[in-house]
């Protein structure tokens, strides 16, 4: 895939990332895991985890790392620009009539349906990613997954800290139990 094609793909994906944050994940998967088959689901999880180690919008980090993975450093820069331009262009235009737009009843109506759709899309993505994450060390992985889910759901601990804790748990656990013996 050329840089230009990659730019266009991320540009379109960024234009459809409503709701922010992780909603970019199913869109990136659709293009680069399913259609182009350039990234596997396990690698996708790695990229998302890595994107959490930096501050700033998750969608931009994920686009950057996808670019880095596929096209090296130039891909990373293209990923950032392609992810940043759509919101920049859209808000620059809407700036002149934002109160009308944000309160427009038809815009709101379209959004009600779209949020429902995005939610369904996210559920399928989570199911696929969970399956990929449970491929190795089923019991260990299942415990970690449930623990991370409950921590995120029930506490307000910062995501960055949860990521750090997960990395440490992995390092310590596999230091004491060799990979081939981990259930």
């Amino acid at each position: 895939m050329g840089l230009w094609k990659f730019f266009l793909k991320i540009f379109v994906i960024s234009m459809m990332t409503f709701g922010g944050g992780y909603t970019i994940v199913p869109l990136i998967r659709e293009e680069f895991v399913h259609k182009e088959k350039l990234i596997g689901d396990e690698e996708m999880l790695d990229l998302i985890a890595l994107s959490q180690t930096a501050p700033g919008p998750i969608a931009v980090s994920t686009a950057l790392l996808t670019g880095y993975k596929l096209k090296g450093r130039r891909g990373a820069v293209v990923g950032v620009i392609a992810a940043t331009l759509p919101p920049l262009i859209i808000i620059s235009i809407l700036y002149f009539f934002y109160t009308w737009f944000a309160s427009n009843i038809w815009v709101r109506a379209a959004l009600r349906g779209m949020s429902g759709a995005i939610c369904a899309i996210m559920i399928i993505a989570v199911y696929d990613l969970a399956k990929a994450a449970l491929k190795k060390h089923k019991i260990f992985s299942a415990i970690i997954m449930v623990a991370a889910f409950l921590t995120g759901l029930l506490t307000s601990i910062n995501l960055g800290l949860i990521i750090l804790a997960l990395a440490l748990i992995g390092i310590v656990a596999f230091h004491y139990v060799p990979e081939e013996k981990m259930p």
Partner: peptide, 16 residues
């Protein structure tokens, strides 16, 4: 090793 825990963890966080 860190990523072996990060993968299921991240899947859980996207679930949240």
């Amino acid at each position: 090793h860190a990523f072996l825990a990060l993968r299921p963890g991240v899947a859980g966080l996207i679930g949240v």
